[in-house]
Design a protein around this nucleic acid. Structure first.
Length: 342
DNA sequence: AAGGAGATCAACCGCCGTATT
DNA sequence: AAATACGGCGGTTGATCTCCT
């Protein structure tokens, strides 16, 4: 593990900013041959760069499906939501922002959003109002507050576990899709078509299939089913190791899956009625959760909702707007707190 | 107009997980 | 089972840009 940097092996490799000529070479080579093995690509393409540098340049800049320029309000909202859920897992966040790279999102978070949240008095790490933390400190970190926090942390931990399981399944799905693609080579023009999500192990279209289960071509049917099964079993195991109020692994999966599933469904395909069904199906699963959890998610949603209400966006179907999407049924009722100025 | 400070972002670095040998 | 190769990820850096004095 921890092998040495690829660039160490060959001296004289160029570093630093790419020139237009280098870009052209890389672009031309990939368009013609696909990237294949990154390590051998620079030699074949006539570039004095290491493979890693080429891969980075391609994924972060040259790919034809990358959207550049200012982030929209909706994108900002999505990033904030997903960061609250996933933390600094930029590639996972990028999965839900088509045409944006993890590097770009990371940069935008560090240079814009983090500061903005901080200005609003919200801790960009915990996504909680700083006042809470102060109050807890002032109260000497009492057992009640600490307990609530740990429960909230446990809730988040479940979410993260589910997401991890999902990402694992995505990776498996992507590998299987790749194998299928190799088995039946695409036309030359398709060399660039399998990259419709900048950094995800799963392409955006595949995410959509996976999340929405909609009109998926049968070629992916088995893989999708396998992926779903993998998520279910992974999450089931996670549930057995932890709590979830005595619910079975399957129902726990449904409950927690709602949260991440909503993100997936809504960001990829727009809200659909399956979501409502699942919300109904799992309502009450998380009723043991504490008011702190409600407040936590409320604060995020309020922030998001307030900015959304001031915009003319039609994206309300694309990002989470309904408290029930995020919260356990019991928490939804408490979602009428004053919106935070964004 | 000059230059200093802060902001931005492309690119690098080092580590990790997985596949292959 | 161990070693190695590879792709991917998140954190960090440094060059460049923009704004302010």
């Amino acid at each position: 593990m921890g092998r040495s940097p690829c660039c160490e092996k060959e001296a004289g490799l160029k570093k630093g900013p790419w020139t237009p000529e280098e870009d052209q070479k890389l672009l031309a080579y990939i368009e013609q041959h696909g990237h294949g093995c990154w390590r051998s690509l620079p030699t074949k393409a006539g570039l004095r760069r290491c493979g890693k540098s080429c891969r980075l340049r391609w994924t972060n800049y040259l790919r034809p499906d990358i959207k550049r320029g200012k982030f929209t309000l909706q994108e900002e909202q999505t990033i904030i939501q997903l960061h609250a859920l996933l933390g600094n897992r930029w590639s996972a966040i990028a999965t839900h922002l088509p045409k944006r790279t993890d590097n770009e999102i990371k940069n935008y978070w560090n240079t814009h959003l983090k500061k903005r949240l901080a200005r609003m008095g919200i801790d960009p790490v915990t996504h909680k109002p700083r006042v809470d933390a102060d109050a807890d400190v002032a109260a000497g970190g009492g057992a009640a507050g600490g307990g609530a926090r740990s429960r909230a942390a446990a809730h988040l931990s479940h979410t993260a576990q589910w997401e991890s399981a999902r990402l694992e399944a995505e990776a498996r799905l992507a590998r299987e899709a790749k194998l299928r693609a190799l088995a039946s080579p695409p036309p030359a023009t398709a060399a660039l078509s399998g990259v419709d999500s900048p950094t995800s192990t799963l392409s955006f279209s595949e995410s959509a299939l996976f999340g929405a289960g909609s009109a998926a071509p049968d070629i992916h049917g088995a893989a999708r089913a396998a992926a779903v099964q993998a998520v279910q079993s992974s999450y089931g195991e996670a549930c057995q190791e932890h709590h979830f109020g005595g619910a079975t692994a399957e129902t726990s999966f449904a409950g927690a899956g709602t949260l991440a599933g909503v993100l997936l469904d809504c960001s990829v395909t727009g809200a659909d009625q399956r979501f409502a069904e699942r919300t109904e199906a799992c309502s009450g699963e998380l009723q043991g959760e504490d008011d702190d959890d409600k407040g936590y998610w409320n604060s995020i949603l309020n922030m998001v909702n307030s900015s959304m209400s001031s915009s003319s966006s039609s994206l309300t179907s694309e990002v989470v707007t309904d408290t029930e999407m995020f919260l356990p049924a019991t928490a939804a009722a408490a979602a009428s707190a004053t919106p935070v100025e964004f």
